[in-house]
Every structure is written in C-alpha cells, then in structure tokens.
Design a protein around this nucleic acid. Structure first.
Lengths: 189, 189
DNA sequence: TTTTTTACTTACCGGTCGGTAAAATATTAG
DNA sequence: CTAATATTTTACCGACCGGTAAGTAAAAAA
C-alpha cells in the first residue's frame, strides 16, 4: 500500500506530469493544483512562483537522468565500452522514465533562447548534463576508441536530441545503432 | 525598395516570427497584431482562430522546406547521391531559413500527442514530410547504397530531430557527418 | 496552558487571454 | 454620385491567468 505523500511531493509530481504533457507555457497553476488535489494557494506556500516550481521539477528530473545514466559506469575504464553503456542506459531511461524525457523535449526550444534571463538556471542545468556526456565522448575519442572525426560537443547534441518523439523501443534501438555507427566508423565517404 | 505587403501577409509573417521565438502557447494574438502593425481584431477578420492562423504558418513553412529540400534532387537517379544532397540542402535550409526550423522545434513535443484533436492536421502535415524523407532513405537502402541495418523511418526521425537547438554551422556539419557515417557504414560493432 | 509555528483555505487582485459585434472607413461597381 | 462591398478600428466580453492577503485549524514549543 502506498504511503501517503506530503503535499509538497504531490505538487511536484503533479507538476511533472502536467509539464511533461503540455509544457511550461501550456499548464496553469490551477491545473497543477487540481491534479495534486490541493488548493492553488498551497502551491504558492511551498513555491515562490510557477517558474520556481518548474525549475525544481526540471532539476530533479535531470538529476535522476544523470544518476541513471552515469553512476553505474563510473568504474568502467575502457572508454568505448563505457560510452556504449551510457548510450544503452540512456535509452533505458527514456523508455522507463518517459515523463522526464518528455519534459526535456517540451522545453528544448527554450534552451536555445539567450534572452529570457529567468530561464538561465534551467539552461545551465541542461548544459551541465550535456557537458558530462560530451566529456565521456571526448575520453573515448582521446583514447582513439572512436572516430577522430567526431566532435564531442556535437555528438552530445545529437544524442540528446536524436531520440525525440519516438516512443517505440525498436525505433529507439534503430536510432541508437545509426548514431553508434556514426561514432565508431572511420570514414563515411 | 520593399513592395507594401497586404495585411494578411504581414500577419502571417509576424505570426511566423513570434511562433518561432516563443511557440504557439507562448505567443498572444495581441502580440502578433502588434508585430504586424495591425489591430488584433483584424487578424480575426482573416483567420477564424489562433489555431487556424498557426496552421497556415505551419503549412507554408513545411511546404517551403519540402520545396527547398526535395525539388532540386528530383532527377537524380543515384539514390545515395540524392540522399546526400537532400541532407546537405536540409542543413542549408536550417541555416538560411532558421525561423522555420525554429517553429518545428518549438512544436515538436506537440507532434507526439495523440490527444488534442485540433492538432491533428498539424501532425499530419509533419508526417507527410517525414514520409517523403523516409522513402528517399528507403530507395537508397533498396538499391543497396546504404547500410541494410538502417530502418528508414527511424533514420528520418533522427534527421528531423538531430539538428535541434544548434545554430552553429560547424556543429550542424559535424552532426551531419555522424549521421551520414551511421547510414553508410556496414557495421558499427 | 499559553504562545508560536506549520499547513492550508477562502476570497480576491489586476491583467491578459482568445474572441466578437458593430461602427467607421476605403475601395470598387453601376 | 451612389450604393454596395471589402477592409479596418473601437470597444468590449467572459474566462482564466499568475499571484497575494488575510484568516483558520491543528500541532509543536514554551
């Protein structure tokens, strides 16, 4: 039987669900309150603003993604194997924690907007994730285990963007294979 | 000197610009009116609703993309060359008609939402584009000019999603190279 | 037992949303 | 010149937005 969650926790989960489905701009605070089964004003008791609530959801989501994807490969010392496992567990994460991936997809366009000061921390958290992935790729490249043609930063972009929309596991797998061959093959021409 | 545009055209261009920057949900009709230099009610004279205005922008944008990407390769008969040119002109399009690509990025998450009946035609127009790309890939595969491991549909997804956010031309080029090697190399393992 | 803090509700704020009716102005046709 | 028609503006609608002030009930601290 489920332990009763605190109101704060219920709000966060409701927000995550709603933001995943409709995005930050598509969701109203009253909508979140309704899903969480609390009054709207209570949200403002725990969170100063919609933006702050969103950021907490965002932060937790990316933390969870990083934990899942990077923690188990920490002691792997063959970089290309490590990278391969990162990719696999990333797909595993997308499949099982689909809500979190959806939030990232929803706000992807906002991540490239240099204006909008209030989104800075959201962008920063995302950039930190990307950096982790990028340096794992760079390690493999430095060890000459993947193609020297690969630019680690672009490859990280490709991985983080390439699996959007698709929910079908076979589709994800196909995409992973293409990307992987792109990373390891020596010359495409 | 610029010929004076009709109000209707000015509205569409203003809407395209605004939707590219902030997305459908992030833009208000009065904002669009202001950019177009027109009263809000005039928009409703030409377009029944915000949704209809958005769809017209969307439709024209994807038409333009298809024209740019597919028209010049129509008489190419070596499928792999054709596909390579498609990819190149897609990047060219992203670079030069960046506003249109941004609209697609903004609404990407909405494209996977099966609910929301009113977005059906938006999704359908996108799916038609994807189908065109997918069958170009399939042609190259059938002619055994690219890897037999490639699933055309997934590859089309990857191409349409993989170039997001990035505006830096070098980054786009790097991503294109990875994808291309992924398509043509015979086995990544 | 009194006081303070925590958790939460009720009722409201000004502002903006998408959308509309009707009047005013331009344009065109007879 | 006039009448009809196409275009644009003015002024407004109810609904909902994010956010807040003030109060309440219960629990924790004094």
């Amino acid at each position: 039987m489920r332990a009763k969650l605190s109101s704060r926790e219920r709000i966060i989960r409701a927000a995550r669900k709603a933001f995943a489905e409709r995005g930050h701009d598509g969701v109203s605070m009253s909508e979140i309150a309704q899903i969480a089964g609390v009054k709207k004003a209570l949200i403002y008791y725990y969170f100063p603003s919609k933006e702050d609530l969103f950021y907490e959801v965002w932060q937790y989501s990316i933390d969870e993604l990083e934990d899942h994807v990077f923690s188990e490969t920490r002691d792997e010392n063959v970089y290309v194997s490590k990278l391969k496992r990162i990719l696999r567990s990333y797909i595993d994460f997308i499949t099982n924690k689909n809500e979190i991936k959806k939030i990232m997809d929803q706000e992807r366009a906002n991540l490239s907007r240099e204006d909008n000061e209030s989104w800075k921390r959201v962008r920063d958290r995302y950039e930190a994730l990307k950096e982790k992935l990028s340096s794992a790729i760079n390690d493999a490249k430095t060890a000459q285990e993947i193609s020297m043609d690969v630019d680690p930063d672009s490859a990280a972009d490709l991985i983080l963007n390439g699996f959007s929309i698709t929910e079908d596991p076979d589709g994800l797998e196909s995409i992973r294979e293409i990307i992987w061959r792109g990373l390891v093959s020596n010359s495409g021409e």
